[in-house]
């Protein structure tokens, strides 16, 4: 049986309108001038991409190529200007580690809150709470407010929550480079375990080596256009050649 599609991106474009002023006065007084203050910017143009379940796809490209925007569109955080994005299955988006953390709450409270944000019920969180704490390695400080955590502990706890939500589709944006080497190794090991379990991973990364190691498939974006879609090794080649062109 061919693997089913988990994400379908059809003809997606995304336009940003940059406004230079935001105050009411400016807007009301210079209605005509405010047209001139608009600047349009196409972050993505006509992207078509189908992702089948169980694959690991790397989205690569230079700064400003639209990788993160594409990931946000898949996550449903932004809406495309034209085209459509559809997906199915349980989603976990790791766009920023600890996005839902509140500095004044303890590690324990934040685990429950963050897990709920990612779609876990209280019962499910309680069931995997020990695993989460164990994975993060911050047992001793779990009842301390997270504002006293070191930045490493903070992201480790956040990552631990995210990987325990049992997603079918995991969106990862540049967050694998957290913690010390041992923890990074643990994260990569977890990603490989996810792959074995048939979960789908969409990964945005600048670390070419990591992408080459982990991904089955690489999509290269360049100024909002999809310029390559295929095997990991070739994708990295394309990305490198782009670097040569532009620099």
């Amino acid at each position: 049986m061919a693997a089913p599609d988990i994400v379908r991106i059809e003809g997606v474009s995304k336009r940003f309108v940059l406004l230079r002023d935001k105050s009411v006065k400016e807007r009301l007084l210079n209605v005509s001038a405010s047209r001139a203050n608009r600047e349009e910017f196409w972050a993505l143009r006509d992207i078509d991409l189908n992702i089948s379940a169980g694959t690991t796809v790397g989205l690569v490209g230079h700064n400003g190529s639209g990788k993160s925007t594409l990931l946000k569109l898949v996550g449903g955080i932004m809406q495309p200007t034209s085209g459509s994005v559809s997906r199915r299955g349980r989603l976990a988006a790791l766009l920023e580690l600890g996005a839902g953390f509140h500095p004044d709450l303890t590690g324990r409270e934040n685990v429950y809150l963050n897990a709920a944000l990612l779609g876990l019920s209280r019962k499910e969180t309680r069931a995997s709470f020990d695993q989460i704490v164990d994975f993060s390695g911050v047992e001793t400080f779990i009842d301390t407010a997270v504002k006293f955590y070191s930045s490493g502990m903070y992201v480790r706890l956040a990552f631990a929550v995210a990987v325990h939500v049992d997603p079918d589709l995991l969106l990862v944006d540049e967050v694998l480079a957290v913690g010390d080497e041992a923890f990074q190794e643990k994260c990569l090991e977890k990603i490989r375990e996810f792959q074995r379990e048939g979960r789908t991973i969409v990964l945005v990364s600048h670390a070419a080596k990591q992408v080459e190691d982990l991904c089955d498939r690489v999509a290269v974006l360049h100024h909002g256009a999809l310029i390559f879609d295929g095997g990991a090794a070739e994708g990295i080649q394309v990305l490198r050649s782009q670097t040569d062109d532009t620099v």
Binding site: M1, P4, R8, A53, S86, R87, R88, G89, D168, R199
Partner: peptide, 12 residues
């Protein structure tokens, strides 16, 4: 997992 996913409807 693949079988379960293929049974789910695509959501826009």
């Amino acid at each position: 997992r693949a079988a379960r996913i293929s049974a789910l409807p695509m959501e826009m």
